[in-house]
Design a protein around this nucleic acid. Structure first.
Lengths: 254, 254
DNA sequence: CGGAAATTTGAAATCGCTCAATGATAGTGG
DNA sequence: CCACTATCATTGAGCGATTTCAAATTTCCG
């Protein structure tokens, strides 16, 4: 499972061994959690970010009517809590969907990374932009498409991300989410998620047994989902263009 | 209107005059557009980012069924096109909602900024995190709340951002969006947006005349919207903690 | 002033939600 | 290993929110 833990940091550039080892060194403590345990709740003070090394995590935001939106599902190799860096109090709750292992990184250490390894910093910047694009896609899916399309879009999305962590994933994979979780992801009730999943089943697009899902017809699913496909850059040449000319550190203004 | 053009870059730290002047220098050409004109379309190759100096811009993503989602509305002082930096082809279309002026910044120049002014870079990093939080809020609103609540949430949101650009904005402001635009923002049809706006009217929460909107009852609107309120950090101490110790540039791995 | 775009309104159809009940599955303690 | 319990999945029926289609008004702009 651990085979490609840094795939996320390597999405846009190849990190040097120095970069990777420095990154590994900033971890201060390792936390192990069981399913349903909370890593950090919405509203908690922002003292650290987390590097997810094992398991799945739901990142959710509560709405006053008692409902909640799962805004992201995080997989091994991802950083948790980066968006809340700009806030006094955390915006989202991190809940373990499976047994989970995370490494806590203090804000000082994280900011230090940013200065010591500016190229890694730029990688993290690009990863954040990728997350923005993915959030936009989710918003487009939830805002503009029907139940069955939203589910198709999410299944394709999570399958693709799973493949990046573990290249051995085929068309079939374990989805450790209840139908309630799915409902909170795609903005529906769990009853309607149930009916829509069976409809995907009936149409021969997917197959389910227990928590295992098989995507039978990728083309059909993509067409149904209706979202544009996005090709991510790899080592863009402009990154190495003007970039290396000067040296500087992050420094307060006079 | 132009009074606080750099409010966005100054959200988290106070930029030095060097930082601001360097930032201003990277602009390569100035584009002036009329309402409805496209600055850059979804799918176009990613050659530049844009600094919006005047007017409102809708950032939208198309879905196959012919509908589209407006994922962001940008106001003066904001950068356009940063998320698409991680893509081969642009993810969103930028369309002028009013007469607009933008400055184009080449990717090389932008990457150069990142290296020359790492503190400004970190500011931009934090602005990106803020955008992620705002997108999550929008997703929660669209995914989990009813039509009237989504509109309340959006009106509060845009009012708050407007105030940051122009402190003189009171409870009343010009909203240069059609009801179709609003529909594409909150994930409804324009017919239902119309009915929901009149319902907000009827309840005495807002008042409309032409494009001018007055928010009559902020407390009521906030309660209705049902979203958590988020307080953004200002000059966080961890930013100056470990950060200034080293000097480095963005550099390719060996 | 004329035409196009935007807003408003009505009526019917559809989608998704709520409430309620039944079955299936997995985990727990004895 | 089994009984017990909680959680999860499934199904039905009726209701409510939102969409769709269609048409009338109003506003905006040249």
């Amino acid at each position: 499972v651990n085979e490609n833990l840094f795939s996320r940091l390597s999405t846009f550039t190849n990190p040097t061994s120095l970069e990777l080892s420095t990154f590994e060194d900033v971890a201060e403590k390792t936390l192990t959690l069981r399913r349903k345990e909370i890593i950090r709740a919405e509203g908690a003070s922002v003292n650290e970010v987390y590097f997810l090394t094992e398991g799945w995590v739901a990142c959710s935001m509560n709405v006053l009517n008692g409902r909640r939106q799962i805004v992201t599902v995080s997989l091994p190799g991802e950083l948790l809590g980066v968006p809340s860096l700009c806030l006094e109090r955390a915006a989202v709750t991190f809940e373990a969907l499976t047994p989970v292992v995370v490494q806590a990184i203090s804000l000082d250490a994280f900011a230090g990374l940013f200065t010591k390894l500016p190229r890694l910093a730029f990688s993290m910047f690009l990863v954040s932009q990728q997350e923005r694009v993915l959030l936009m896609e989710r918003l487009a899916s939830v805002g503009q498409t029907k139940a069955i399309q939203r589910l198709a879009a999410f299944l394709l999305h999570i399958h693709e991300r799973l493949q990046q962590v573990d290249a051995s994933v085929g068309q079939s994979f374990e989805l450790p989410l209840t139908q309630s979780d799915l409902a909170e992801i795609v903005g529906l009730t769990f009853v309607h998620v149930n009916r829509s999943l069976r409809e995907l089943d009936r149409r021969g697009l997917i197959e389910r047994s227990g928590k295992r899902v098989t995507l039978l017809d990728f083309e059909g699913l993509r067409e149904l989902a209706g979202l544009p496909s996005h090709q991510f850059v790899r080592d863009p040449e402009w990154l190495n263009g003007e970039a290396p000319r000067r040296q500087a550190g992050i420094r307060a203004p006079r």
